[in-house]
Structures are given as C-alpha cells and as structure tokens.
C-alpha cells in the first residue's frame, strides 16, 4: 500500500510529461528595436516602413526551432506630436516584404495590426507602455503577426498618423515579444 502512494502520483506526472512535454517549455522575452528616433510627417515622409527580420534578434534565433506560439506582444515607444491637431498612430502589417509608399496603398494591401494610439495636439507626448499597448492589437493583425513569428520571422510594418496633418517623432520604438518555446 505504501508503494501505491508513490506510484500513483508518479504515474500522473509521467502521463503529463508524455503528453507533449508541456513541462519542458517557457516564455522567453525578445525585442525588435525600431530606428531611434524616426519621424512621420504628413507633408513629406507620410509613413514609416520597417522591414522586420526577427532572425536578427538573438533570443528569437536561438529559440526558433522550439517556438510554439506567441504569449505576448506590444509596440512601445514615446510618441510626440510636434505639429498639428490631436490624432493617433496606427501600425499595419504585411506578411511579406512590401514597399507601399502611401497610406491608401497600405490600407488596401496590408492588415491593421495595432492602434489607434492617441496623441494630444502639438506639442504633446504619449509614452505607450507595455500594458496599454497589449490592448491595442487587432485580432486579424495579431493572428498574422503570430503566423509570421512562427513562420519565417520576416514581415513589413507601416507606421502612420491618422490626423490630416501631423509631424510625429517616435523615440525608443520597439516591438516586444514573449515567445512560447518548448521541446
């Protein structure tokens, strides 16, 4: 009977371990830094295009063969409206490298990933933190991002303002990722 008291919990643990090794897994933090700073200007550089290659991120590269999912994601940074009325910033995504040059092209050919993140009239700043950012993702955009993170890790994002006239500077912009890695 004494043996049974050890055998039963051991069997339960063994059964759990056998069902896909969920025990041997973890949540790994990684980040992709955007150019610091970058500026979007409705009169000239209307959008910022970023060809993201997560394979340049060591935490991603090291865990790519073990990558099972994406637990958490955020777009963070300090967004400063240098000119114009109050507005917002949005981030859109395409799953492949693209080179759209207008907002209309982005809206026609990309998927909205994140936003709008509001900014007050010039001169106003908004520090988008991790918690706030996590609530600004669209379901379609997040799904595409997860697919890309689990896929080749290469995609394109576009950042632009929603007000008619804007000059927005982004400091310390980054994409934060928490990767689910397992055996």
């Amino acid at each position: 009977m004494n043996r049974l008291r050890w055998i039963l919990p051991s069997l339960a643990l063994a059964a759990l371990t056998a069902t896909g090794c969920i025990i041997l897994s973890g949540q790994i933090f990684a980040h992709y830094d955007l150019p610091d700073p970058f500026t979007i200007d409705s009169s000239s550089n209307i959008l910022h295009r970023e060809l993201v290659d997560l394979n340049t991120v060591s935490e991603y590269k090291d865990n790519k063969d073990k990558l099972k999912g994406l637990s958490d994601v955020a777009v963070v940074g300090k967004f400063t409206n240098l000119a114009g009325s109050a507005g917002a910033v949005e981030v859109w995504i395409t799953k492949d490298p693209t080179a759209f040059t207008t907002v209309a092209q982005v809206m026609a050919g990309a998927t909205k990933l994140w936003g709008p993140a509001s900014i007050g009239a010039a001169v106003a700043s908004h520090n988008i933190n991790w918690d706030e950012s996590s609530k600004l993702f669209t379901s379609d955009g997040k799904k595409m991002l997860i697919d890309e993170v689990k896929g080749d890790g290469v995609f394109t994002i576009y950042v632009f303002g929603t007000a008619g006239t804007y000059l927005i500077k982004v400091d310390h912009g980054a994409i934060l990722l928490v990767i689910d890695a397992g055996k």
Binding site: I23, G69, L70, D180, G182
Partner: peptide, 12 residues
Amino acid sequence: IVTSPASSETSR
C-alpha cells in the same frame, strides 16, 4: 503547471 493560452504544446 497550466497549459499555455498561446500554444497547446507549452505551459506556464
């Protein structure tokens, strides 16, 4: 050990 919402193959 809680199955991860992000993947059926991992856990928190």
